[in-house]
């Protein structure tokens, strides 16, 4: 689904919530994952000039998980170590979105270049 305006973040959150419900995730896991999705989707819009996010369910119990992949077409992240640091921001935010999102999921991957933009992958198990 497309990420262009802030109302798209709401839709991405709803979709993430449904996927987590589908794998029978606990309330805490659901909340953490959806919060991470919200941060990453907002970053794609604010810093990446928009993009797209997709969700899929992988594996079987007990390792069944929801995978979210968020791509933007932005300028990429120049200094990844710095970007993943708590409190660092190039914008007007708190600098907790990216670093915080990483703590909220079971697997976090980020690939970024000035040519291809930034792709963030988030994974969460049901428990």
């Amino acid at each position: 689904m497309t990420l262009a305006r802030s109302s798209d973040i709401v839709f991405a959150r709803e979709t993430a919530m449904k996927a987590m419900a589908k794998i029978g995730a606990s309330a805490v896991k659901r909340t953490k994952f959806v919060t991470a999705v919200s941060e990453i989707a907002r970053n794609a819009i604010i810093y990446g000039g928009g993009g797209a996010i997709s969700f899929r369910i992988e594996g079987v119990a007990p390792t069944i998980r929801v995978v979210a992949e968020c791509k933007d077409g932005g300028p990429g992240i120049a200094d990844m170590d710095l970007a993943l640091k708590d409190g660092y921001t190039t914008g007007s935010g708190l600098g907790l979105g990216l670093s915080g999102a990483r703590r909220l999921v079971d697997r976090f991957n980020i690939v970024s270049s000035s040519k291809t933009g930034t792709t963030v992958t988030l994974e969460s198990y049901a428990r």
Binding site: A27, V28, T31, K32, L94, S99, G100, A101, R103, L104
Partner: peptide, 14 residues
């Protein structure tokens, strides 16, 4: 505030 939200905010660092 929901309990899961409180837990998430702390982990987020917020």
């Amino acid at each position: 505030m929901r309990p899961a939200v409180a837990m998430t905010l702390v982990e987020l660092g917020m």
